[in-house]
Nucleic acid binder design. Structure first.
Length: 247
DNA sequence: ACCCTCCTGTCA
DNA sequence: TGACAGGAGGGT
């Protein structure tokens, strides 16, 4: 049940009381929760919730219904014998409610899906003059890459972040595709990257930070070529890269 | 490409 | 006190 003293997202919440959570999955950058139809309306009453955590959002599952006050609590679902909390310090997180899963599907392609291959990537890049780093952060073509992994992917692919997206040659595009898949896969397998407060639903921290080659390492040595890692700002976001081995 | 906004916290 | 932070949407 949503506690209406708390706000999360912009839409008014539909009735969730009495429903069962059928499935929880990732769709692009969002956590999607499928609720069963209400018993009184066994058909046509499905309900989906897409949670975008943004910068500081966390979904916390508590096996016991503790009611201790929690800082930054924005929403609470009471479950049988437990609770699901949405904690979000900066309040950037959003809830999107939908009647079917399709409404939560982003327009872009998940880089880990088979739908993305060399040909499709070339089409997506097109002749864009946007720097490849900022291109990767868009969610309308490839879905799921954020500021950490954009820098990591380009470092692994040995591509400079300022290169125009449409100007990559076939070999560079192939490296970009492989790197994107490898980094994203490893990030998911490692539960993300924790700097200070990120935790998953069970309270576990991410473990990807041990793999970071360049992100947040301005001034340090590149692990590949020992060049100096630089920090630059692109589109108001920090980019980390090595000018010695990324071009 | 630039700028701004949302919001709260940490660190130098 | 100011810079910066895992994101994204808006404006010019």
């Amino acid at each position: 049940m949503l506690d209406d003293r708390l706000r999360a997202g912009r839409q008014r919440e539909p009735v969730v009381a009495g429903r069962t959570i059928r499935a929880v999955m990732r769709i692009g950058k969002r956590v999607a929760i499928e609720f069963s139809p209400r018993e009184s309306r066994p058909t046509g009453d499905a309900l989906w919730l897409g949670v975008h955590l943004r910068m500081t959002g966390r979904l916390i599952w508590l096996p016991a219904p503790a009611r201790a006050p929690r800082r930054h609590l924005r929403a609470r679902f009471a479950l049988d014998g437990g609770a699901l909390l949405f904690i979000d310090t900066r309040r950037f997180g959003t809830f999107d409610w939908a009647a079917e899963r399709e409404a939560l599907e982003p327009h872009g392609i998940d880089p880990l899906s088979a739908a993305l291959d060399a040909r499709r990537l070339r089409e997506l890049l097109g002749d864009s003059s946007q720097p490849i780093k900022t291109w990767l952060l868009r969610q309308d073509r490839l879905v799921g890459l954020g500021n950490i992994y954009a820098s990591e992917i380009l470092h692994r692919a040995r591509i400079a972040p300022l290169r125009p997206a449409g100007g990559l040659d076939a070999a560079e595009r192939a490296r970009l595709l492989r790197s994107t898949r490898a980094i994203l896969r490893r990030a998911i397998d490692n539960c993300g990257t924790t700097f200070s407060d990120f935790q998953d639903a069970s309270g576990d921290e991410g473990a990807y930070q041990q793999y970071l080659a360049v992100y947040d390492r301005g001034g340090e040595r590149c692990p590949r070529c020992a060049g100096q890692i630089r920090r630059e700002v692109q589109a108001q976001r920090s980019t980390y890269w090595c000018a010695e081995c990324q071009d």
